[in-house]
Amino acid sequence: MRVLVCDDEHLARERLKRLVEKTDGCEVVAEAANGREAVVEAQKSRPDVVLLDIRMPDMDGMEAAEHLSKMDNPPAVIFCTAYDEHALQAFKVHAVDYLLKPVNAEGLQGALSKAKTLNRAQLAEIGREVSEEKPRRRRHISARTHRGLELVPVDEIRYFLADQKYVTVCSAEGEVLIDETLKELETEFGDQFVRIHRNALVALKYIEGMELATAGHHQVRLRGMDARLTVSRRHVAGLRRVLQNL
């Protein structure tokens, strides 16, 4: 069984790696110091299981589990955490199992054995539960592309643009498509993005201003972009108020 170890503490990673290597049929194929690294490394090493800490910088384990669940062949997730058992009840649907720190050999072997018995359909079902719950705001948006699962930092996103079933995410690195709705994104990121049209959400931090274009239409200028985005008539007054308060 191929295992990826993720913990922001170096000593904790080393201890988990030693325990995994002592478990029959298991090998450590990669390690990571935060959730973002775990998602990147998982695509490279294709682990069967990810041992995942919860509290980590940049991207925590809960968000990482959600992104991992979107992989074509998602790995089983086992949380390794210092949370007490009452708090852990809330995490059950996100993982195959969980272990309290300090992790011992017997507990790890039991969790890995449990993960080994799961089939792809069961892992996919766990992934759906992760995606549906979304306990708090993400720091990254994940998108499936021809390069695999790409992570786009929310702070770098200029705008979301809806087009039929999909939403285009535009950032400094280019564009990707995601299978989410503008309504969901507006609910999650409403204090960072403003709606300027029924099909567009724009990042407040990148708005330079609003201007009147030909035929009486208003447009938004975005920092670092030549393109202008159309503001619908019904959103002009609201956007003007928002910009006055920036």
Rank of each mutant, 00 (worst) to 15 (best):
residue 195 R to C: 10
residue 95 A to H: 08
residue 49 V to R: 09
residue 23 T to N: 10
residue 141 I to H: 04
residue 161 L to A: 09
residue 130 V to F: 01
residue 143 A to W: 09
residue 2 R to P: 06
residue 53 D to C: 08
residue 158 R to K: 03
residue 50 V to S: 11
residue 40 V to E: 14
residue 94 H to V: 00
residue 2 R to T: 12
residue 221 R to P: 02
residue 90 A to R: 15
residue 11 L to D: 06
residue 245 N to M: 14
residue 67 H to K: 06
residue 153 P to N: 00
residue 89 Q to D: 11
residue 200 A to N: 07
residue 57 P to Q: 08
residue 148 G to M: 05
residue 10 H to Q: 13
residue 235 H to W: 08
residue 81 T to Y: 04
residue 219 Q to I: 13
residue 21 E to K: 11
residue 154 V to S: 02
residue 167 V to Y: 01
residue 60 D to M: 01
residue 111 A to V: 12
residue 20 V to D: 09
residue 208 E to K: 13
residue 245 N to I: 03
residue 75 P to F: 03
residue 80 C to A: 10
residue 40 V to W: 11
residue 76 A to I: 10
residue 209 G to A: 04
residue 90 A to V: 06
residue 41 E to V: 12
residue 222 L to M: 06
residue 235 H to F: 12
residue 191 D to I: 06
residue 88 L to A: 09
residue 148 G to R: 07
residue 183 K to W: 00
residue 206 Y to F: 14
residue 244 Q to S: 14
residue 132 E to N: 04
residue 136 R to A: 13
residue 118 L to H: 05
residue 16 L to K: 06
residue 138 R to D: 15
residue 213 A to F: 07
residue 221 R to C: 12
residue 137 R to C: 05
residue 77 V to E: 11
residue 35 G to H: 06
residue 141 I to G: 10
residue 191 D to R: 15
residue 49 V to T: 14
residue 229 L to N: 02
residue 154 V to L: 05
residue 51 L to S: 07
residue 105 A to W: 07
residue 231 V to K: 03
residue 32 A to G: 03
residue 135 P to G: 10
residue 131 S to N: 14
residue 215 A to I: 01
residue 28 V to I: 06
residue 44 K to W: 07
residue 66 E to A: 13
residue 201 L to E: 02
residue 190 G to Y: 10
residue 110 G to W: 05
residue 164 Q to S: 06
residue 206 Y to T: 03
residue 5 V to G: 10
residue 146 H to I: 04
residue 93 V to H: 11
residue 41 E to Y: 04
residue 14 E to D: 12
residue 196 I to F: 10
residue 141 I to P: 03
residue 74 P to R: 04
residue 65 A to E: 03
residue 176 V to S: 06
residue 180 E to A: 14
residue 175 E to G: 01
residue 70 K to I: 07
residue 122 Q to H: 08
residue 158 R to T: 02
residue 134 K to H: 10
residue 9 E to Y: 09
residue 146 H to W: 07
residue 102 P to I: 08
residue 90 A to K: 15
residue 182 L to K: 05
residue 127 G to F: 05
residue 90 A to P: 00
residue 207 I to N: 03
residue 121 A to I: 11
residue 202 V to S: 04
residue 90 A to D: 12
residue 39 V to M: 03
residue 208 E to R: 13
residue 165 K to H: 04
residue 35 G to M: 05
residue 130 V to C: 15
residue 55 R to D: 14
residue 11 L to E: 06
residue 26 C to P: 01
residue 81 T to W: 02
residue 112 L to F: 07
residue 108 L to K: 00
residue 157 I to A: 02
residue 147 R to H: 15
